[in-house]
C-alpha cells in the first residue's frame, strides 16, 4: 500500500469510523499529564505531547487485573476451585503511540509469549491490538532511543505510522493489520511527492535532534560476574530511595505479583504490577532474602535490562530510550550513566 495523506482535522472522523469495529485508545491530557485513554466521540484526543507520563504498558498488562475467581463455600459443588474469569478481547487500536513504546511491547512480548509458556491474557490482547504510531518531530532532551536500536520514526513494532506534517498527517501502513485498518477508516488518498519528501526529511531531522546517547557496543561481550561484582554499584545506588517510580513508569518493566483477595465467601486471584526495588519482592517465608540491601535491588534492575536480558534473548538491551526513568527519578539516578559504566567496565 502506498503512503496516504489526510488533513489533520479529518483524524477525529476517521477514529469515529474505526470505533464501529475497534476500541480506540488515544493520548489524552488530564490534570496536566498525558496518558492513553479510550477515545470519545467529542474528540478528547490530544497529540501535542512528547511522551506520556505513564507508558502504555497497562493496555496489554493492566496494573491490577482479576485473573481468576472462586468461592469459599464448602457446601458448594465448586467451593475452593479456582476458575477462569470470563474476559473480552475486542479488536483495539492504540493511536499515537510513540515508536519507543511500541518497541517496548515487542521486547516484553518475548517474556510473555515464549516457546514454553504463553501468558494467555497478554497474548490475546496483543493479537487484538493494532498500533498506530506517531513519529516524534520534537524528541525530548531525555530521549536516547537512537542508541538502543530504536528511533523517533522507528517502524519495526508498528502497524501504521503517522508523520505530523503541520496541516496533514502522512499515513503509512506497515503491516497487513495496518492496511486493513486504513481500509476500514477509508484512508485512501495517495500522498503527493512533495509531502512524501517532507516526511523523509522530518525523520532525518528528528533523528539528528536526539542529543543524548548511550554506549551499548560492549555489553554483549561482558561477563555476568564481572558486571555483577563491579565496583560502581554502591555509587550508582547511593541516592536511590527504592521508591519504584522507575519500574512503574518503565515500558519494559514487567514483573508482577499474584495475590488472593476475599470478601466473605467469594474471592478473586489478582495479578498486580510489582517492583524489584522492594525488599518483599524476593523475601522468602523463612526470612531469608537474597536481595536484602538497596544496592542489590538497584543492581538487579540494571543488570536485568543491560545484561541478563541481553544474554538471554539476544535482541539487545531491555531499554527503548524513552527517558521516563531519567525524567521522573526523584534523586536523579540516570540510566544513561549506568550504560556508560557497564559498557565501559
Amino acid at each position: 500500500m502506498s503512503d496516504k495523506i489526510i488533513k489533520k482535522e479529518e483524524l477525529t472522523n476517521i477514529l469515529k469510523a474505526l470505533k464501529e469495529t475497534y476500541e480506540v485508545i488515544a493520548p489524552v491530557k488530564e490534570n496536566g499529564f498525558y496518558s492513553f485513554k479510550p477515545f470519545k466521540d467529542g474528540g478528547n484526543i490530544d497529540l501535542n505531547f512528547t511522551n506520556t507520563r505513564l507508558s502504555p504498558k497497562s493496555l496489554l498488562f493492566p496494573q491490577s487485573e482479576r485473573i481468576f475467581e472462586f468461592n469459599l463455600d464448602e457446601k458448594s459443588k465448586d467451593g475452593y476451585i479456582v476458575k477462569e474469569h470470563p474476559k473480552d478481547y475486542p479488536p483495539s487500536v492504540i493511536v499515537g503511540i510513540r515508536p519507543c513504546d511500541a518497541k517496548a511491547f515487542k521486547l516484553v512480548n518475548i517474556n510473555f509469549d515464549n516457546p514454553e509458556f504463553k501468558d494467555p491474557w497478554w497474548v490475546k490482547r496483543m493479537e487484538a491490538m493494532t498500533f498506530i504510531g506517531l513519529g516524534c518531530n520534537e524528541p525530548s532532551s531525555t530521549c536516547f532511543c537512537t542508541s538502543v536500536g530504536c528511533g523517533p520514526f522507528n517502524e519495526e513494532s508498528l502497524d501504521v505510522m503517522l508523520f505530523d506534517l503541520e496541516e496533514y498527517f502522512l499515513v503509512r501502513a506497515l503491516t497487513e493489520k495496518g492496511e486493513k485498518l486504513l481500509k476500514q477508516g477509508r484512508v485512501d488518498k495517495d500522498v503527493d511527492e512533495g509531502l512524501q519528501k517532507k516526511a523523509d526529511e522530518l525523520r532525518i531531522k528528528a533523528e539528528k535532534k536526539i542529543s543524548s546517547s548511550v554506549p551499548t557496543d560492549k555489553l554483549k561481550e561482558k561477563k555476568i560476574n564481572d558486571l555483577f561484582n563491579a565496583p560502581f554499584w554502591d555509587d550508582v545506588a547511593f541516592a536511590c530511595i527504592n521508591c519504584g517510580t522507575c519500574t512503574f513508569l518503565c515500558p519494559t518493566c514487567w514483573c508482577f505479583d499474584i495475590q488472593d483477595e476475599v470478601t466473605k465467601t467469594v474471592g478473586d486471584r489478582i495479578r498486580n504490577w510489582d517492583s524489584c526495588m522492594f525488599p518483599l519482592f524476593t523475601l522468602h517465608a523463612s526470612g531469608h532474602n537474597p536481595r536484602p540491601e538497596k544496592v542489590q535491588r538497584v543492581r538487579q534492575r540494571f543488570m536485568h535490562k543491560l545484561n541478563y536480558y541481553v544474554d538471554k534473548y539476544n535482541t539487545g538491551v531491555a531499554c527503548v530510550g524513552c527517558g521516563r526513568c531519567v525524567k521522573y527519578c526523584p534523586v536523579n539516578v540516570d540510566i544513561r550513566e549506568v550504560f556508560s559504566l557497564m559498557n565501559g567496565l
Binding site: N114, F117, D119, F256, D274, Q300, Y308
Partner: peptide, 11 residues
C-alpha cells in the same frame, strides 16, 4: 513459569 520476574539468579 519464568514470567513474573522475581526468582532469577543472574539470567
Amino acid at each position: 513459569i519464568g514470567i513474573c520476574g522475581r526468582c532469577n539468579i543472574g539470567d
